[in-house]
Design a protein around this nucleic acid. Structure first.
Length: 594
RNA sequence: GCUGGCGUAGCACAGUCGGUAGUGCGUCGCAUUGGUAGUGCGGAGGUCACCAGUUCGAUUCUGGUCGCCAGCUCCA
């Protein structure tokens, strides 16, 4: 049995053992057991139990599981009729529902573990519990989960368990989890003084000087790139009267996620009729700008990018560091094209995405979401749009190298989503490329075509990073806050050995600063070791130490981040060239040699 | 929003079976050191998240509020 099979069969079998253990502990009549699938680090099982499972119960459950395995019971598979299945699981509401939902012609199988525990299951499973004795497992956590992922339905207790082939693999995995915690951007953001959340503004980050420098470095790169691709940056009001959002349709679909501000505090009246809304999206602003003039077919594509702040009110439990905030800056753009330009425009957007992700050495997953049942617009245009998106994905990702979420597109158009995973393996949507046939209609947008007739442009809503906030969260975890030279909050730190070297140190700082290097220094009369420690803690790419020797020879002595090596006798000119090269090449790695 | 957990000095954490709190790092001061993640001594810093209740007395117990974390749901 290879590892893949092992994981699949053993984890699944262990899930049955967990269910059996829980039933033995709480009593069969007190337990409703639902489903227990495997996941990437083990498995979980959902239950309704007479009381909440706490951390103190973990050991009891684990011991019971071991005890059950030691019984070395045989596992037997049995094919049953629907009636038999319903009778076996009478009183088990979730199992009953599952059985009733099975297609008529489905072969129903159940698995017995010993003769007192049975579970509805397709299998396959191990033959005897003794085969599980060599595996290693550990209860990870317990939390609430909704039956069938529906927040309107029963909430169950989900017990998560790590499960691996042996103790060594489990231990390795636990070490990995610990390592992941070290990468957590919330932790690093605090240590590295990047950002801060105050409880007076939940989900609305403060960017600290270092974090803001990082954001601006990314922003500068982003702006230049878009300018070269024919984008024109705009900025619009953060607050607008409700009317704008009624026209766009957001008032109907998105009102609950919008922060509202009374227009007149003295005379609030019917609140919702007298409010400004903080914009949750930038699209209407771009449309307003488009509509300032009558546009010609020859003007298209028109690309209005923006980094305005948007606000989205989220439910309390949904906030999560920089990954999920209530105030953020999308690296947004709304591109207006003719229908015949869709393919080329998407291709250009993908090439921008490649340039941006490439600059960070990142590779994101791509997913295509296609026409939903309640689509609006012309079927032929949809087909053309989906074909265009597919063709681009086939070309850039390779056919079959991306996921397709059938029917998952927005009602106004299909989309491509770019996804990244965080240190804990959670998937986050970053960029999105959405074709939109709806808003141009809602706002009655037009351009005059070559035949003199008015036609409606197609709108492409796109973000590549997704939002600067989420993206910074992801790269913080990815680089463990050791950012590439070109985005690092500080690129060089200058450390004079003694106060008498301050003058030379300052000269060096001025030279680098003039060249645009983000440089800091520490001229205090304290031990140089302390200064070096501080700068290294902040993961500054290069710490340049200067003493009498360097001052005499016009050189610097470099400490390279991530290496204990020192580069001595580097001339200022050489160092300048090094900085320049790293900046311009957007190199991910630092140079450790001159 | 739901389930569970958490909130003690700038940070990381102890602790109080109810009698107003400690350690390490950092900070400040002094001394020392001075070529690559220093050393020694001393000082300051906390209405123990907030609001009620119980009590002679609450940081500790109870209830509520706010915030944070994990998971679910929802999203960039």
């Amino acid at each position: 049995m290879d590892r893949e099979e092992f994981l699949s069969v053993y984890r699944h079998s262990l899930a049955h053992i967990l269910a059996k253990a829980v039933i033995e502990i709480f009593g069969k009549e007190n337990v409703q057991y639902a489903i227990g699938p495997q996941i990437n680090d083990g498995f979980y099982y959902d239950f309704v139990l007479p009381r909440t499972v706490t951390n103190e119960d973990f050991k009891t459950i684990e011991d019971k599981m071991s005890e059950i395995m030691k019984r070395k019971e045989d596992w037997t598979r049995k094919e049953v009729t629907r009636e038999e299945a319903l009778s076996i699981f009478s009183g088990q509401k979730f199992k009953t529902e599952l059985i009733n939902d099975l297609p008529v012609d489905e072969l129903i199988t159940v698995y017995y573990t010993g003769d007192d525990f049975v579970d509805l299951c397709r299998g396959p499973h191990i033959d005897n519990s003794s085969l599980l004795l060599s595996t290693a497992f550990q209860i990870k956590s317990v939390s609430g989960a909704y039956w069938r992922g529906d927040s309107e339905r029963d909430q169950l207790q989900r017990i998560y368990v790590y499960a691996f082939p042996d103790k060594k693999a489990l231990k390795e995995h636990l070490a990995l989890v610990k390592e992941a915690m070290e990468r957590d951007h919330k932790k690093l953001g605090k240590e590295m003084e990047l950002f801060y959340f105050d409880e007076t503004a939940p989900g609305m980050p403060y960017f600290l000087p270092r974090g803001w420098r990082l954001l601006n470095a990314i922003l500068y790169f982003w702006r230049e790139l878009h300018r070269k691709h024919g984008y024109q940056e705009i900025s619009g009001p953060v607050l607008s009267k409700k009317d704008l959002w009624v026209t766009s349709g957001h008032w109907g679909h998105y009102k609950d996620n919008m922060f509202l501000v009374p227009m007149d505090r003295e005379n609030v009246g019917d609140f919702e009729d007298n409010v400004y809304a903080l914009k949750p999206m930038n699209c209407p602003n771009a449309i307003k700008v488009y509509q300032l003039k009558m546009r010609s077919y020859a003007d298209l594509p028109l690309r209005f990018n923006t980094v305005d702040v948007v606000h989205r009110k989220e439910k309390s439990g949904e906030l999560n560091g920089l990954f999920r905030v209530q105030m953020f800056r999308q690296d947004d753009s709304h591109n207006f094209v003719r229908e015949d330009q869709i393919g080329d425009e998407i291709a250009d957007i993908m090439s921008i995405a490649n340039e941006i992700y490439g600059a960070f050495g990142l590779k994101c997953g791509m997913e295509l979401s296609t026409r939903p049942d309640d689509y609006m617009g012309d079927l032929e245009v949809w087909n053309k749009a989906e074909a265009a998106l597919k063709e681009i994905l086939d070309k850039t990702q390779g056919a079959g190298n991306y996921e397709i979420n059938e029917g998952d597109g927005a009602f106004y158009g299909p989309k491509i989503d770019l996804k990244m995973t965080d240190s804990l393996g959670r998937e986050w949507q970053m960029g999105t490329i959405q074709l939109d046939f709806q808003l141009p209609l809602n706002f009655d947008m037009k351009y005059i075509d070559s035949d003199g007739k008015a036609r409606r442009p197609v709108m492409i809503h796109r973000a590549i990073l997704g939002s600067f906030e989420r993206f910074i969260g992801i790269i913080t975890e990815n680089f463990k806050a050791s950012f590439p030279y070109w985005v690092a909050p500080e690129q060089v730190a200058v450390v004079p050995i003694r106060p008498e070297n301050n003058e030379y140190a300052q000269k060096l700082v001025d030279i680098l600063d003039k060249q645009g290097v983000r440089v800091v220094s520490d001229m205090r009369d304290i031990n140089m070791k302390e200064k070096i420690k501080e700068f290294k803690t902040m993961r500054i790419p290069y710490v340049a130490v200067v003493g009498n020797q360097e001052a005499e020879n016009g050189t610097v002595s470099l400490n390279v981040r991530g290496s204990n090596k020192q580069l001595r006798d580097v001339t200022i000119e050489q160092f300048k060239a090094l900085c320049c090269e790293l900046q311009e090449s957007h190199s991910i790695e630092l140079k450790e040699e001159i």
